[in-house]
Design a protein around this nucleic acid. Structure first.
Lengths: 188, 188, 188, 188
DNA sequence: GATGAATGAGCATTCATTCAT
DNA sequence: AATGAATGAATGCTCATTCAT
């Protein structure tokens, strides 16, 4: 449908405006004008600004889970962990908005429980995936036997989330050095 | 000075409002009314809202560097690292706003370079302190010899910053578990 | 167009408020409420108060040059000069705001060069017209041969501008007496 | 008295601010700060802003009548008229604020009858002086016999008032050219 | 005389939202 | 689907004025 297409366009535009200017700088009119439509028309697609934001949240979770689905053929825990870091590095360079918008949403989730729920779910899935991966590595004796997999999963996701929302041109280097460190730490 | 006192009160109030509602929810009028004064009176202390925010930023950096100064008598690297985690845990429980406001500022720093400068300085001091601590530990053979101290310092600060701005009742436990893990990882 | 109509209405209302209360007394809200619309709606037509004022300036120049265009069929210099005074008298009685707003703008032009430019152009055209008229009269020996036409043109326009912004019920008489004097002075 | 001195200083400062920025730009605080005192202190000298403005009006009338008193020894009508133009030229160059503030007040007098009264008195005195001068010249057959002295007096004052509030670097030349013209016109 | 602190009323402007067309 | 026009409720900020000290 043309209508559904436009809706998606609007969501993507709102998404990039949030990345650019934060939630603070998100204006219904701006989203509309970037799409070449009238501000009033936008309300045809979203009854309210809040509804648009909700759609952006959903958009983010989709973006977030896109890559993981494709790498499911790997089985080697270390390779999978490395792939994880590679994914993140790739996304940080290609789609830095992803991390910025995520950070904006995390902050917002402190006051908006509906966002909190969705975000929690999103990050939980990531953590679970990592925890399973790590557990697998422990079982295969690739990773050290005294590893607290749950805590490590939390640590890795938190680390990555934090790195993502920080700025810096040498981000790619940084993350690869951190990846190397983490590997060293958890390897048997 | 009565005037200076009120100024500080206003900064503290703005600070807590930012923690509660984010920058998005910061209203000059709200700060004023919480202080029991007229909105116009606030402009007697701060010519502009932006000036007030700047004062809040300075307030945050002061808050941030308060505790570290007191623990300077320690010399044992491991004890110092543990103290670092203990400090953070203490602050997260007693002054969770600290981390929330910091996270708000981090996001804002993406668009406001004057904030970026101050934050960078603030975190850099922390990282330098940690790096020195870790290096000391490596030299004393308390920490493993293949430790990349710079990267580890970045990892630890990023980890803590990330944990601080996440919510959750069991935060204290989480951080102590992570502390234990990190210890295990970096010890010789 | 309904929209263009309203825009003109707003300009006319701002124009009369300036005539009534001066620039000092011009309030966006007042203009809006006289038009029966919300203050915010006015900003739909003019992005800023300053833009509205600019539109008023343009309105004034249009008003100012309206009559002259109609009298272009006259050729006798004396008749044309008399017509000029008659025009002014007519306008002073029918549209006294014209002169008051013009005087307000003249004062404002001392600090706002964009207004200065427009006013200068407006008055220059008038002076040029008068100078040509006077020169014609000199050539035709209707006016005295030692007449400094440029200076006289300046004197007459300045005189009229000054009279216009002065108040007084007997203005009509005054101007006709002055007209008679000026005639006497410049006639051969 | 030191107090009376300061009062005069404040009036002079308000006077120059009006010349600079118009009534629109007159701020009690600005006047005070230029005098190096607190805005509240100014209210010790003037109960209200309006009272200060009234004092400025009086100041203007004093300024206005200063020069005339000194030239009373002249008796030749033509010399006196020339002196009048010379005075005006001198003032326009040395104290252009005089004419600007006068123009501001003229406009204000349209809405403030108390100012209108004072201004009318001020200009009337000038007109009366000029009318007497002209009448004297007619009697002495220096000026043409068909001169309408009242009207001419009005015309000359209006002309000068108008020239004064117009801007332009070549003002001095302009006024002397006009003076020459007027002389030519009214001489026998 | 002078000031710091406070205030109320007001001001231009912004913004999400509504609705007839 | 789309828009022009409108609105109410805010928002940051200004300013003359007040008053205790």
């Amino acid at each position: 449908m043309g209508g559904e297409q436009r809706r998606k366009e609007l969501i993507a535009l709102a998404y990039s405006i949030i990345a650019e200017k934060g939630f603070e700088g998100l204006r219904v009119r701006d989203v509309a004008s970037r799409a070449g439509i009238n501000g009033a028309t936008l309300h045809y697609y979203f009854p309210t600004k809040e509804a648009m934001v909700q759609a952006v949240v959903e958009h983010l979770t989709e973006q977030f889970s896109t890559l993981r689905e494709q790498n499911s053929e790997l089985t080697d825990p270390l390779a999978m962990l490395r792939q994880e870091f590679a994914d993140v590095t790739y996304r940080m360079e290609k789609f830095p908005e992803l991390f910025i918008v995520a950070a904006e949403l995390e902050l917002r989730s402190l006051r908006d429980s509906s966002i909190a729920v969705i975000l929690k779910e999103m990050y939980q899935a990531w953590q679970d995936y990592l925890a399973a991966l790590l557990q697998n590595g422990v079982t295969q004796k690739v990773f050290r036997s005294d590893l607290d997999v749950q805590t490590t999963a939390i640590a890795i996701t938190t680390l990555i989330r934090g790195l993502g929302s920080q700025l810096g041109s040498e981000k790619g280097d940084q993350i690869s050095r951190i990846a190397t460190q983490v590997e060293q730490w958890i390897m048997a």
